[in-house]
Nucleic acid binder design. Sequence first.
DNA 1: AAAACCCATGCAAGGTGCTTGCATAGTAGG
DNA 2: CCTACTATGCAAGCACCTTGCATGGGTTTT
Lengths: 152, 152
Amino acid sequence: MDKTDRNILAALQNDARLTNNELADIVGLSASQCSRRRTQLEKDGVIVGYHAKLDREKTGFGLTTIISVTLATHNSENSKRIRELFNSLPEIIEAHAMTGEMDYYIKIATKDLKSLSSFINDKLLAHEAVQNVKTAISLETLKDTQNIPVGL
Amino acid sequence: MDKTDRNILAALQNDARLTNNELADIVGLSASQCSRRRTQLEKDGVIVGYHAKLDREKTGFGLTTIISVTLATHNSENSKRIRELFNSLPEIIEAHAMTGEMDYYIKIATKDLKSLSSFINDKLLAHEAVQNVKTAISLETLKDTQNIPVGL
DNA sequence: AAAACCCATGCAAGGTGCTTGCATAGTAGG
DNA sequence: CCTACTATGCAAGCACCTTGCATGGGTTTT
């Protein structure tokens, strides 16, 4: 992974639909070589995938919420079950096991407060392993590039 | 936006590199019509963009941190300045203005604890508008599809 | 220092995919 | 029932991607 590879990664993070010709102009290589390097980065697992980014409002999922989840008791069984729960719920678009008081941070995408409420009550709190949750609603998303700063 | 459009959106969220032929098989349309619908969804701003997703570890940015930022004083000037700060810092890959006690949640991607520390001290706390921060480090990312659950 | 080797690169061709004009089917309104 | 409009499929022309092949730059070996 040299500087050219990182340039390719940065470019594809910004726009995954770049043709190899456009990529070639950006990084200063031929299109064929860009194709080869990109293929290799995919094979090495550096590039995990390509995803379309959708508008939250226009798709009707304008409500973003960050919830802190605390487990009832800390054991491997509960840990395993909570992971399965997180993976089974499509409203959860991101989940982390954290340091500090709160055990997990999860990010939720819902249509409105009503569906958020039913998600929390029926899906989260209904689960035995969950002790309590703390909900914080995003008033405004100021930034949402999930782009790794490969240039640093 | 009918059911077919939502199917297209769901498919492209999972894999933006799908050919129109593959897309056609998934949603049950011809390739040409998939092309036209996709183009329209882009024009309407429903599809905001296409982005490569990179492996955090392999790109050397394996440390994910969520920081709560509290402003010193709440006025529009500070609010404006904090937005500019967030936008200027590439380590911040997501930022929200929140309800509740904490004013902002920001998600940080850094190489290691050392660079995280210098980010907090030199970039965040150095800023006049910032009163204090609360740092929570992600021990493990359990889930990270930023995919809107368009199917719900 | 010379030679041998290896890897990255550019070029070109063959194949694949994308886009758009055109004709048709399906649908809603009068 | 007819008209008008939109959505669709097909096909062709065009752009793009990929890969074999030859070349060059850099490195190791003798």
